[in-house]
C-alpha cells in the first residue's frame, strides 16, 4: 500500500506540490492524471524516495520514505518515464550492481538478473551495453530492476510513452497481472484511454494540487450521456418533446442532442415515432475520462 500524506515541494519560488494526499491500496490500480507540469513526476519521485519533500511523507507498506527509506524502497518498484542508467555498463552487470543494494550476493544476483531480464523480454540483451538500449528496452530493464525484491507496490511514470504497440500491451498486461496479485499500482499516463481501461481509481492533479479523486464507477456515474437522435423531419415540436426529457437540449443540423436524459433512449424514440417523426439514427454517447479530465481540470483553473 502506498500512502501519500500531505506532501509539498517547491523548487525555488515555484511550488510544484501543495499538500498532495492520496492512497493506493493493495490490489488497486490508481491512475494518476494531470496536464504537463501538474506535479505527477514530482509526486512519483518523492514516493520512490529520490526527491525529498519539503513537508509531508509517503508510506510504503507503512515504511516512511523520509524516515525509513532503506525499508520503504525495498517494497516499491519504479519505472521512470525516461529511465537513465550508467551507459557504459552491460544490462546484467548493472543489474547485479543494483541488486547489491538489496543485500544480494553476486552469483545470486546474476542468476536473478538472467531470470528477470528474460521475463521482461531482454533475455538476448544481457550483455548489451545500456547505452545501446531503446527507450522501450530501458523501461523493461527498469521494470526488471524494480522487481528485484518482488515488491507489493509499483509506480509507473508515463510508462506507456514512447512504446511500440507490443510494449504497450506488455505493460498493460503486467498491470492487470499485478492487480490480480493484489499489488498496489500507481501509474501516471497521458494516454487516458489506457487509464480508463486499467484504473480502479483516478487521481486528478493540477498545479501541484490533487483536484479530484474518483473511482471508475464514480466517473462512469458522473458521466452524463448524450442521446443523439437524427430526425428526417426535425422541427420545433420535436425539440419540445425532447425538452420533456432533459433540461439541456441542443439542436445541430438535423439532430437533437439530449444531455443526460431522464429516461431510457428507447422511451424517447418511441414517443417521437408515435408523434409522427421518422427517426433515422440514434446513438448514446458516454462521457469519456478525457471529458471528465478536461472538466475537472477546467474547474480547477
Amino acid at each position: 500500500m502506498i500512502s501519500i500524506d500531505k506532501i509539498s515541494k517547491s523548487f525555488g519560488r515555484f511550488k510544484a506540490l501543495d499538500n498532495v494526499s492520496f492512497d493506493v491500496r493493495n490490489g488497486e490500480v490508481v491512475g494518476f492524471v494531470g496536464p504537463n507540469g501538474a506535479g505527477k513526476t514530482t509526486t512519483i519521485r518523492i514516493c520512490v524516495g529520490v526527491l525529498p519533500p519539503d513537508s509531508g511523507d509517503v508510506l510504503i507498506d507503512d515504511y516512511s520514505v523520509t524516515r525509513d527509506k532503506r525499508n520503504a524502497s525495498r517494497y516499491v518498484g519504479w519505472v521512470p518515464e525516461i529511465p537513465i542508467f550508467e551507459p557504459d555498463e552491460s544490462a546484467l552487470n548493472y543489474f547485479v550492481y543494483l541488486a547489491g543494494y538489496y543485500g544480494m550476493g553476486t552469483s545470486e544476483a546474476r542468476s536473478l538478473g538472467r531470470k528477470l531480464l528474460e521475463e521482461v523480454g531482454l533475455g538476448d540483451s544481457l550483455n548489451k551495453k545500456l547505452k545501446n538500449f531503446s527507450l522501450g528496452m530501458k523501461k523493461r530493464f527498469a521494470l526488471a530492476v524494480s522487481m528485484i525484491n518482488n515488491p507489493d507496490n509499483f509506480i509507473f511514470d508515463e510508462v506507456l510513452n514512447g512504446l511500440d504497440p507490443l510494449g504497450v500491451a506488455f505493460f498493460r498486461d503486467l498491470v492487470k497481472k499485478f492487480k490480480k496479485e493484489n499489488r498496489a499500482v500507481l501509474f501516471s499516463s497521458h494516454i487516458l484511454k489506457e487509464v480508463e481501461d486499467l484504473a480502479d481509481r483516478v487521481v486528478f492533479i493540477n498545479r501541484g494540487k490533487v483536484v479530484k479523486i474518483m473511482t471508475m464507477d464514480e466517473i462512469k456515474a458522473s458521466a452524463k450521456p448524450v442521446l443523439v437522435i437524427k430526425l428526417r423531419n426535425l422541427d420545433s415540436r420535436a425539440v419540445d418533446i425532447a425538452r420533456g426529457y432533459s433540461e439541456n437540449v441542443r439542436v445541430e443540423k438535423d439532430a437533437i442532442y439530449i444531455y443526460n436524459p431522464k429516461t431510457e433512449p428507447a422511451d424517447i424514440v418511441e414517443v417521437l415515432v408515435r408523434s409522427g417523426y421518422k427517426v433515422e439514427e440514434t446513438k448514446k454517447e458516454e462521457a469519456s475520462l478525457e471529458e471528465i479530465f478536461f472538466k475537472v481540470i477546467g474547474e480547477s483553473k
Binding site: R45, V48, G49, V50, P52, K69, R70, N71, S73, R74, W78, P80, P83, I84, F85, E86, P87, L98, Y101, Y102, A142, V145, S146, N149
Partner: peptide, 21 residues
C-alpha cells in the same frame, strides 16, 4: 559527477538506501 549530470544516480537512489548511503 557524470552519473549525477545525466540523472543516472536517481535510479540508483531508488534502491534501498539513503542519500547518505
Amino acid at each position: 559527477a557524470k552519473p549525477r549530470s545525466t540523472g543516472a544516480l536517481e535510479f540508483v537512489l531508488a534502491r534501498p538506501m539513503t542519500r547518505f548511503d
